[in-house]
């Protein structure tokens, strides 16, 4: 049981970090960023290039990946989403744009980095082994701690910084925030860049453990959407709770239900459908938006 809980906690921390970026973008701009998974993959390949091909330390790869993704996010918001939101009142315009960006990034990743699975050397060697009751490699513990530290830093930033307060105001009421002098364009761009940067951070963190390949983008986006459905779209605490719940469900399901075949995600999807029928706004979301 200790092992199952530890696996769930580890999965939950990384999932929560993935969901945070997605929910931040949704809360600020009402945009469902279908390209979130592809951004995660792109960042993994950037980190791989820096660490393996250029031979630089992992921390450099992590920082470069985060910066590249933040710049990419900022540019995508400024030159793609902003004009579309300005010209179109229909929500599906941004959804289609996001889907288009996902396909574009898939093609770009194939062109730049190829189709092969890539990985970087372990950041920390060794395995924590508590009498075979709880086994966890040190690099996973490190990634889990880093993911939790990033989540806490993000919450503190959103709570206490000027930019964080402005973005929360935007998320609550875009018009009211504008009337109070918040530069909507600027903070939307910063928010999108931060969302993309979070995808970049988690992609770079996980490339040292799971590796990265072209096909990971779509499934990652699906899991991120699952998490924000559970927790409530556009709510930061919801994304975190959704991430940990999904991680724990996956860990428990894979261990307890292993003798029944691959039924874990079938049950997760079925449970989610029932849950959404009862509480469509998710655990932390408000029915009115």
């Amino acid at each position: 049981m200790e092992q199952i809980l530890a696996n769930g906690l580890y999965l939950g921390a990384q999932y929560a970090l993935i969901a945070l970026g997605l929910t931040l973008i949704f809360s600020l701009m009402n945009v469902l960023n279908f390209a979130h998974g592809q951004m995660y993959v792109f960042s993994g390949f950037v980190c791989y290039t820096v660490v393996v091909q250029l031979g630089l330390p992992f921390i450099v790869g992590l920082v470069v990946a985060a910066v590249v993704l933040a710049v990419m996010g900022g540019l995508i918001e400024k030159f793609l989403f902003r004009p579309v939101i300005r010209r179109s009142k229909r929500d599906e315009s941004t959804m289609l744009l996001a889907a288009g960006i996902a396909f574009f990034l898939d093609a770009l990743i194939l062109l730049l980095f190829g189709e092969k699975q890539r990985g970087i050397p372990k950041v920390v060697n060794g395995v924590f082994n508590w009498d075979f009751r709880l086994i966890m490699p040190y690099d996973r513990i490190l990634i889990c701690v880093l993911a939790i530290a990033i989540i806490v830093s993000f919450i503190l930033f959103m709570q206490y910084s000027k930019a964080g307060r402005a973005m929360r105001a935007l998320a609550q009421d875009r018009m009211a925030a504008q009337l109070m002098g918040v530069d909507v364009d600027r903070y939307s761009m910063i928010g999108f860049a931060m969302g993309a940067m979070l995808a970049g951070l988690v992609g770079a963190l996980l490339v040292s453990i799971t590796g990265v390949n072209l096909g990971m983008g779509g499934p990652t986006s699906i899991k991120a959407f699952l998490m924000i459905m559970i927790g409530g779209a556009g709510v930061i605490s919801g994304a975190i709770i959704g991430g940990f719940i999904l991680g724990m469900m996956e860990s428990v399901g894979l261990s307890v239900l292993s003798s029944y075949g691959d039924v874990t995600y079938l049950l997760i999807f079925a449970s989610l459908m029932i849950f959404l029928a009862i509480r469509p706004q998710g655990l932390m979301g408000k029915p009115w938006g």
Binding site: Q3, I4, N7, Q14, T210, S251, L254, S259
Partner: peptide, 9 residues
Amino acid sequence: TDFSPVLLP
């Protein structure tokens, strides 16, 4: 992405 829970049983 994480095979530990898969392989444990």
